[in-house]
Simulated assay, not measured.
Amino acid sequence: MRKAGIVGLGAMGAGIAQTLRANGYEVHVCDLRPGVATAFAAQGGVACNNPAEVAAACAVVVSVVVNAAQTEAVLFGAGGAAAAMKPGSTFVMCSTVDPHWSAALEDRLGQAGIHYIDAPISGGAAKAASGQMTVMSSAKPQAYAQAGAVLDAMAGKVYRLGDRAGAGSKVKIINQLLAGVHIAAAAEAMALGLREGVALDALYEVITHSAGNSWMFENRMAHVLAGDYTPLSAVDIFVKDLGLVLDAARASKFPLPLASTAHQMFMQASSAGFANEDDSAVIKIFPGIELPKGKGKGKGKGKGKA
């Protein structure tokens, strides 16, 4: 049976693991949270105690963690994958990171004979679980030769954007620029609707069938209507991702006025106590509005002075 390893069984990682299993792979998994890997393995697959165990069993290891620091820990921390990976094996990095950091990681792993694919992902938990997510990848041909089938098995769209690491991450942070700005704009529009006394259900229905709609409005403002801020993608994810966008632009002195404003909005939401809520909680920074109540964490009034 074909094997693949997954490190990190969060919303996206769990979906990828499920998709690979459904496509006939023996999936070896690990996660820092107790019981998560064993729960996955109970439905089929192999639970491992750390990334090194995953790497010892699989020639392709897919890392689905939050950021560069966590990826470093997956590879080079205690029980890390790098020391256990055989020469010629491939490490697939799915986090949103600085493109220059990703390019440097390719060189570092290459010195140990390990192939590397810069492969940030997009689409959300539902598309990851259904095998319909998008992979924005770049890698040397040798890496694709070994791990290309795994990428194709875990995603609906796999874009090959270059023959060196970094190109995939550049495209991903541009995607995140749009995603973050769209969420911030959607929250602003919904907040204005509340302030003006518009019925939110009606506003949502009209906008989602009109030219002003975006995927982020349709997806995230449904969370606001439900009053459910359970984090599928947290506020602090966009503090990080838009920070990466601005860092990249600053290096070339390129102006990004909309991304800068959106970043400040997520920063404000984070510092107001909503850091670990769903990113739609950025709407809570607007003053003098009464948000729909529901089962989610952090429901109630928008914060700030009226």
Rank of each mutant, 00 (worst) to 15 (best):
S137L: 13
G124Q: 13
S233E: 09
M216V: 03
D163M: 12
F254V: 02
I6H: 11
A189D: 06
W101V: 01
S260C: 07
L242S: 00
A104G: 03
T90N: 07
G156I: 02
A165Y: 00
S138C: 09
K240G: 00
F217R: 08
L244W: 00
I183R: 11
S214A: 07
P255M: 08
C30Q: 10
P87K: 06
T134W: 14
L151G: 06
S169L: 00
D118C: 03
D98E: 06
V27Q: 07
A14E: 12
H182F: 09
G131F: 09
P120L: 04
K305L: 14
I16K: 01
V235D: 03
S214Q: 07
A37T: 05
E218F: 14
S137G: 15
A149D: 12
A11H: 13
V206E: 11
M133V: 10
N67I: 10
S210C: 08
V46Y: 00
L9S: 10
W101A: 02
G212Y: 07
L178T: 03
S280V: 12
A262K: 00
K284E: 03
M12K: 06
I174W: 00
K127W: 09
A211N: 07
L242N: 00
R220Q: 13
A103G: 03
V282T: 08
S233N: 09
M1Y: 14
M267R: 14
M154D: 01
A147V: 01
N50F: 03
V60T: 15
A128W: 11
V64S: 13
L161Q: 08
T38H: 09
G298E: 07
K305S: 14
A112C: 07
I285E: 08
S214K: 11
N50L: 02
A56W: 13
D201T: 08
G45F: 06
D228L: 15
Y229R: 12
A272G: 06
W101Y: 10
V282G: 04
F254R: 02
V29H: 04
A281H: 05
A143D: 08
S210T: 05
I6Q: 12
Y144R: 06
I121E: 02
K127R: 15
K127V: 12
M12V: 03
V198N: 05
H209G: 09
N67W: 11
A55H: 04
Q111C: 07
